[in-house]
Write a protein that binds this DNA or RNA. Structure first.
Lengths: 253, 253
DNA sequence: GCTGGGAGAGGCTTA
DNA sequence: TAAGCCTTTCCCAGC
């Protein structure tokens, strides 16, 4: 493909905020927070209307090089008879991607009409919302006090009170909890204990937990509770206590 | 575009592990770990040779819906005269994306010849490697003992010994450190202190640190050191101690 | 703008 | 395979 013509098409697409697709043989340099080099080969470049920039190989979900929305894109035809496409970002740090095409095999710009936004459900906050409706699924007699309580060192997912009026810090995780999550809970509880100078319980609520994290929790006098939920469309449905747990709770009551 | 013809093109591209690009008016459903709905609009679908799957709107770097490499892709022409493309994954959890096209405005498959891989430098491990060559940039008299030492609870970046033969745990971060990083270091040091039952120093080495994280470190008797480095191509160049610090070190020596 | 923290995180390495 | 952890994380919500 003629580079001069390609250049024109690219400029027009950029001006109109269209989605720009370019494929061809190229090498890629990146210099910024890190640095990378990619020798010759055929890849696809995508520039979106918001001026995000991505270089894709024919594998992996994620681009091999990329630039966040808002970068500045320029093109030039070099002395070596290549088309050089630059993507520059200045903030928060200067970052530059240079794609040097020796050949362009494919170039298209798409004008995509799209007013709708993704509705996504099943995230941690969605689980929070369901939980505070009835903390009984975690433990009989548990009452929510505050959600997303901000502390000096991070924020607590749910702050509650148990039936004996002991404060309970609940850390909710939508997937299997590991050391990081256990440590996070520990941090909150430790700080609160110092602050209030009284007994504070800590519960890590997750679908599952790793052995090491479990051991760490127990070592620190913290608790793990299994979180049961399922998705229905974009909504979270909490599943109650398991029969065994429920029985136990009733027994102690 | 004729759906039947589109279907054929898609099958051929999938068989040949080509990069498949499809644009058109569609709605998108996702059900799996979470759930999402995206009402009608024009988007670009990308299927790569390794069967990764992405739905892109004309904004943001990241796809609005996606599937990791290895998913199974099927197509069918529905009764409503739409072309339905499904992407299914079974492990680790069942996940399904359904893209229902009422119209396809663009369809291409690209055969990309590409044998080269990205060479990326400036990651945390690259900094480790430079550091252990001369820990003097961190503190005069510091000697490396072990790199990436695995513990019961996580792994230590660099384990070293100071000039007084006090063990030092060094946690390296390539960017500004926050509460999470401070907590991580604390976790390692705490465990090691228990294990060895002796004084252990902990140093968080990063280009910068947030105020809260700094306060937390000091509160726990841990230290922060500024990490100075710059990129040269794909290589990390450590910059020595600042003049002031160097002067101080020499003074105490 | 900085900070904190989730994400359907993804992707990598090691046990 | 599971666990832990880095990422040019990206992205968003709060302040």
């Amino acid at each position: 493909m003629d580079f001069s013509q390609a250049q024109q098409s690219i400029c027009r697409a950029l001006d109109n905020n269209e989605m720009l697709l370019i494929a061809g043989n190229c090498n890629v340099k990146y210099d910024g927070r890190a640095g990378s080099r990619l020798d010759e080969g055929e890849r696809l470049i995508i520039v979106k209307g918001d001026k995000s920039f991505a270089v894709h190989q024919n594998q992996k979900l994620t681009p091999v090089n990329y630039q966040s929305p808002g970068c500045t894109i320029t093109t030039e035809i070099t002395g070596n008879d290549t088309l050089l496409i630059k993507s520059l970002r200045r903030k928060p740090v200067k970052e530059l991607i240079q794609v040097d095409f020796s050949d362009i095999s494919f170039l298209t710009s798409l004008s995509l009409q799209d007013k709708n936004k993704l509705r996504l459900g099943g995230m941690e906050t969605d689980i929070h919302k369901e939980l505070v409706k009835d903390l009984g699924v975690v433990e009989q007699g548990l009452v929510p006090v505050k959600r997303e309580s901000h502390m000096t060192r991070g924020s607590i997912d749910i702050y509650a009170m148990d039936k004996n009026r002991i404060p309970v810090v609940i850390e909710v995780k939508r997937r299997k909890a590991g050391l990081l999550e256990a440590t996070q809970l520990k941090r909150y509880v430790t700080e609160l204990r110092k602050q209030k100078n009284q007994r504070i319980r800590g519960i890590l609520l997750a679908p599952d937990i790793t052995d090491k994290a479990k051991a760490m929790l127990e070592n620190d006098g913290l608790e793990f509770r299994k979180l049961n939920y399922e998705m229905q469309e974009t909504d979270v449905k909490l599943k109650g206590l398991q029969a065994k747990q429920r029985g136990l709770a009733e027994f102690f009551n």
